[in-house]
Design a protein around this nucleic acid. Structure first.
Lengths: 342, 342
DNA sequence: ACCGTTTCCGAAACCGTTTCCGAAAACCGA
DNA sequence: TCGGTTTTCGGAAACGGTTTCGGAAACGGT
């Protein structure tokens, strides 16, 4: 239990602490023999460098702050796993905080992390735009930050995002090709940029195919299954069920699907459904849910790389990486398999 | 960007650094006036104590290591959220690592955390028993560790666990009461203690009601939906579908449900299903899945409290807390609503 | 006015590293 | 052999706090 320090090793070998330190950090001049001897006896003695002392003397925390909006969808879990692995392998630790889709919580999280002297931040913002100015201020002060998903392309900062417009356009157009005539969009939150972008893609497709006004509608829902359910209940009450829904995410789609099935609607014959940001549950429900898959793994890794680069090279360029996905068409949106899907 | 230190504050007020330090740590003698003055000007100057320096001088990292087996089921996400919140509020940071159900990875995780000088560990072990001796060794050396879920009651260490035997007994007996005559158990991993315990509960119920051998069977599956699906395929191939399944978790149950439905089985009329460790998806599938809910939130919080207590009070007693749950009966296992469920 | 407490504060050691500076040692070519 | 480089290493300051120790100041009672 007693911690053996660099001094103990130095004393044992009658060398100075600086020499021992050098043995552990290649970058300084040290004879190969002594280096090996030191490493060997250090190992025998059970010496491990104290990371805290290292942090203090190097004025670096070797900590990365990661702020995510929520944890319940597997999307962010996966991102966290990738980031953890990436940063650990580079000698950093990840401090994770989640904001529970709450702007105040998010601000607190970021401030906590900055006070804890993280060397950099990866932020997947929560719903709302209130904290934007603060983030940008920090970014402009030179604080290494990479934004991930949930941020619009125009933000003047490094970011890794998904091409929501394009893929929601595809998803919507797929429904149109399948000859659904009345297609509603369950859109998440109005003050959430991924919602806006998915709305834009939806509108683009609907306009391209000249859908009349009464056949399309955008309904704000939130991001949870329960909210999808509520909307369907409401629509049923008003006898306003269209023949297809394009949903902001899988959870809302699954909530909607459940309520529709419970009320006797056949899917996809009466009503079709398409989700977004594919979860593993998409393939577990009946019928299986069509959804747009995001390259979560690659997006997270890229964000890590950009951040690390910025930390080690403070005046590196601002980078914006836009990822593309994959539209997985399943039974929930295919009434007629003879039609080419896209 | 320039960091203002305790010395700057001291110089500005012509006091010593020790006085400033005292102002920030109540425990030492300091006049109320000077304390307030110091805090005020410190704030004006934008001073924040450097947590790294504090860690070094106090020989504490104020870090807690949390090791979980996986991240894809919402169960551990929820646990992580609770632990994060709890420890942050106590001035600690959480270092999270996940083992991907891999023993070697788990050992690496724990060692990494110990080398990083975490003040304590919360471990939800992965599948397998190989790392047990190492954990116990550390525990006996006095390292503060609390085990969470996935550990058997006999382990001589502090732990927070769920009464799997009892609740899987209930779940199984519920199926029996519903007059299902041939009930199979999809059991997870043989070298996973929660599996063993759930098997035990299942057996207890089956034996109590004197089920003949041919009407029960335990099938090892793993913990993923895909594995549930594979087992069903296999059983269909061998014309060996029983009229009920009690499953080790919701994911396996959902995989099984999907495959059964795809093959024309009606649920719960032809086959009933019960899951465990309820996920939010249980209510999204058709029919809704019966499952045992665990008090995840309370379990995590308790684990945090025990650990903190042990850190601050090294010779506190070993504690074992066994939690109970709640059996949520839904349509997937109720053929006849006139029968009292339990 | 004096002495014993109590309150408050400064000096300095310490936590375990890294790193700058300079010096000793080794090496090299003429 | 000698002067100049290059290696290799030790000493000590620095990182930014906490904490022990002891002494000055304030206080309170006689």
């Amino acid at each position: 239990m007693i911690h053996v320090t660099i001094k103990d090793v130095a004393k044992r070998l009658n060398v100075s602490v600086s020499t021992v330190s050098r043995a552990f950090n290649d970058k300084y001049d040290i004879k190969k023999d002594t280096k090996e001897l030191i490493l060997k006896t250090a190992k025998e003695m059970g010496y491990h460098p104290n990371p805290i002392a290292k942090k203090l003397s190097q004025n670096k925390s070797f900590n990365i702050g990661v702020v995510i909006p929520e944890f319940m969808n597997s999307y962010y879990s996966e991102i966290v796993i990738v980031l953890q692995e990436f940063f650990i392998s580079k000698g950093y630790q990840v401090l994770l905080m989640q904001s529970d889709e709450n702007e105040e919580q998010e601000l607190k999280n970021v401030k906590t992390l900055i006070n804890n002297m993280v060397d950099g931040l990866i932020i997947a913002p929560t719903v709302g735009y209130r904290n934007r100015p603060y983030f940008i201020e920090k970014y402009n002060e030179g604080y290494p930050i990479v934004f991930l998903n949930r941020i619009d392309e125009t933000l003047p900062a490094s970011k890794v995002i998904f091409n929501n417009v394009k893929w929601s356009f595809f998803a919507t157009e797929h429904l149109i090709r399948q000859k659904y005539k009345k297609i509603y969009h369950l859109s998440g939150y109005n003050n959430l940029c991924v919602s806006s972008e998915r709305i834009e893609g939806y509108k683009k497709a609907m306009n391209k195919h000249k859908f009349p006004k009464e056949n399309y509608k955008i309904i704000e829902t939130g991001l949870l299954a329960e909210e999808g359910m509520e909307v369907i209940e409401d629509l049923i009450f008003h006898h306003d069920i269209p023949d297809a829904f394009f949903c902001v995410n899988d959870m809302v789609a699954l909530g909607a699907m459940k309520k529709l099935k419970d009320n006797g609607f056949k899917i996809p014959d009466d009503v079709a459904l398409v989700g977004f940001t594919e979860t593993r549950i998409a393939k577990l429900v009946t019928p299986e849910l069509s959804s747009v898959r995001q390259p979560t793994h690659d997006m997270a890794k890229k964000a890590g790389e950009i951040l690390l680069n910025r930390i080690n090279n403070p005046d590196s360029e601002t980078e914006t990486i836009v990822f593309n996905g994959e539209f997985n068409i399943r039974k929930s949106s295919v009434r007629d398999f003879s039609i080419p899907p896209i």
